[in-house]
């Protein structure tokens, strides 16, 4: 416990504030020249610090709650933006990516930290599942941002980068599904349930499989493939945020 003598509400407010600071810093990373780079670096350092603090508060890796999970996804998105942008300077990528990182952090802040890990989630397989899920989603997001940049600039190299991001994102997403399946099997004796969430996750996985295949079809490379890749991220976002809000999900045991 980091705080002694501070109420639950005070602690929650503290963690909300902690996420809003890097959200602002990432947005300021859009500043021209070196200043933008400094703000971005400060945002990443602050963001990693918040995750470390959350880990200390939980006494476990901060991957499981939505508050932390979305924050982790935002951090990976920021880091992948940096990776793809560092050598090539993909035009408009900062204007597309960094606001998404900030918005994700604001969404993460809107979920109150619970600070309790249900016994069924105390499994290394669940942590691996959450970690790779966040990585996969972040890569889908980065790929979609590069895709938007390609549609705006027409630079064919960017479309290749989008594909690269989506391929590795899909592989990591597959890793998250396998580790998630192992976790679920050790917890409940099955690796599949007929729930809307499972169906949408499968649909997302199949959609990216479709994108990876279509890209090999003559005539689909270029703008059509880029648009399909961007739509994929929208489906992934809907799977994460839309179920339970837009499509009602029955309460499950996990």
């Amino acid at each position: 416990m980091i705080f002694c003598g501070v109420g639950e509400e005070g602690r929650s407010l503290f963690y909300v504030m902690l996420l809003l600071i890097p959200a602002v810093l990432y947005a300021m990373g859009l500043s021209e020249g070196r200043k933008g780079g400094y703000f971005f670096s400060a945002a990443v350092i602050f963001h990693i610090t918040t995750l470390i603090l959350r880990g200390l508060e939980l006494g476990a890796l901060p991957f499981t709650e939505k508050h932390d999970n979305i924050s982790l996804m935002a951090l990976f998105l920021a880091l992948f933006y940096y990776y793809f942008n560092k050598g090539k300077r993909i035009k408009h990528l900062d204007i597309i990516s960094l606001p998404i990182v900030s918005v994700l952090l604001c969404i993460a802040a809107s979920y109150e930290p619970l600070n309790t890990i249900p016994p069924f989630q105390k499994s290394p397989w669940f942590y691996l599942h959450s970690f790779f899920y966040s990585l996969g989603y972040a890569l889908f997001g980065t790929a979609a941002c590069i895709g938007v940049s390609y549609l705006l600039t027409g630079d064919a190299e960017h479309e290749g980068d989008q594909y690269k991001g989506a391929v590795i994102g899909w592989i990591l997403f597959s890793v998250s599904l396998v580790t998630g399946g192992i976790w679920f099997f050790t917890a409940y004796g099955t690796y599949w349930l007929w729930t809307p969430k499972e169906l949408w996750i499968s649909a997302t996985w199949f959609y990216y499989g479709l994108y990876l295949h279509l890209r090999l079809v003559k005539g689909f490379k270029g703008r059509p493939a880029a648009a399909i890749g961007i739509a994929g991220f929208c489906i992934a976002l809907f799977t994460y945020f839309g179920l339970g809000t837009v499509i009602p999900c029955p309460p499950t045991q996990f």
Binding site: T195, W200, A203, I247, C249
Partner: peptide, 10 residues
Amino acid sequence: VACAGSLFLT
């Protein structure tokens, strides 16, 4: 069909 199925389930 998978997406439609999710609606039937709910």
